[in-house]
């Protein structure tokens, strides 16, 4: 049974009337409390109907075309579905191994002098990736482990696996902090010509993990540098200066 005060807070939360600190605390509690989640769902369901109180006004005729044009220019990342599992198994395997390799590499960088074992493990993982690269299934794939110098992302990992033949790839993130308010992480492919090509917005869950497929808005026919930047929600046509990860 949820106490009355918390129930009232649920109403305020749905209406977005809680102060930011209380809202964050409430969301944390919401993640672990199924009964509270159910109450919030019920309240949201009711609140959604209140929109009908507004007098009906038709949106301007041109707005639909503007919105449709927007989405046509936006490459959306779609989470992988079970139906596509055979297609992404080797990719996921490669990305997973690459992430592991990156993790070991980072650790090795830090403890290079003290911990020889990490380097051994890194070499093992990297040789595994090299072996995977040589196999037919992965022969056309580029595996890029991205690195960062931004303090807030030092514990995060980002790996991109890209197949130039299919013009599609997978990006896998781990240990990512939540994107800043009204911001999204966006992936870019940067060919040697230097003009960044958007590969779409990458949503990151509350657990800091993400694995999504992508397709750049323009074709990329060479080994590209990949980068992740922080952009206004929904993504940008060109990357902002806030590039947090880069790698090839």
């Amino acid at each position: 049974m949820i106490d009355e005060i918390l129930q009232d807070d649920a109403g305020l939360y749905v209406m977005r009337m809680l102060p930011p600190d209380e809202e964050a605390a409430f969301e944390k509690r919401l993640e672990a409390d199924a009964e509270l989640r159910q109450l919030v769902d019920q309240l949201e369901d009711a609140a959604g109907h209140v929109a009908h109180v507004a007098p009906t006004v038709a949106p301007p005729p041109g707005l639909k075309e503007r919105i449709l044009s927007d989405i046509r220019h936006e490459v959306r990342v779609v989470p992988m579905t079970p139906a596509r599992r055979f297609g992404w198994v080797p990719w996921a395997l490669a990305a997973g191994l690459a992430i592991a390799a990156t993790a070991f590499w980072q650790q090795a960088s830090i403890y290079r002098e003290q911990n020889f074992a990490y380097r051994e493990q890194t070499r093992t993982q990297e040789s595994t990736i090299a072996e995977l690269r040589s196999r037919d299934a992965l022969a056309t794939m580029q595996i890029a482990t991205l690195s960062t110098k931004v303090a807030n992302y030092e514990k995060a990992l980002a790996v991109v696996v890209f197949d130039a033949q299919r013009q599609s790839g997978t990006v896998k993130l781990a240990g990512f902090p939540k994107a800043p308010p009204n911001k999204d992480f966006q992936l870019w492919a940067i060919p040697s010509s230097g003009k960044p090509i958007s590969a779409g917005v990458v949503p990151v869950g509350t657990d800091g993990i993400s694995q999504v497929s992508f397709r750049p808005v323009q074709e990329v026919h060479e080994t590209a540098t990949f980068a992740i930047s922080v952009e206004p929600a929904g993504g940008s046509a060109q990357p902002s200066p806030e590039v947090i990860f880069v790698g090839k």
């Binding site: 006004v57 038709a58 949106p59 301007p60 919105i67 989405i71 929600a233 929904g234």
Partner: peptide
Amino acid sequence: PGLYSMVLKMTGDDAEAQDVLQEAFS
């Protein structure tokens, strides 16, 4: 129609309401 009506009631500004609707559908 339903979403635009709601946003227009909230903002009272046609241009603002269009921008919000565009963001929302995106």
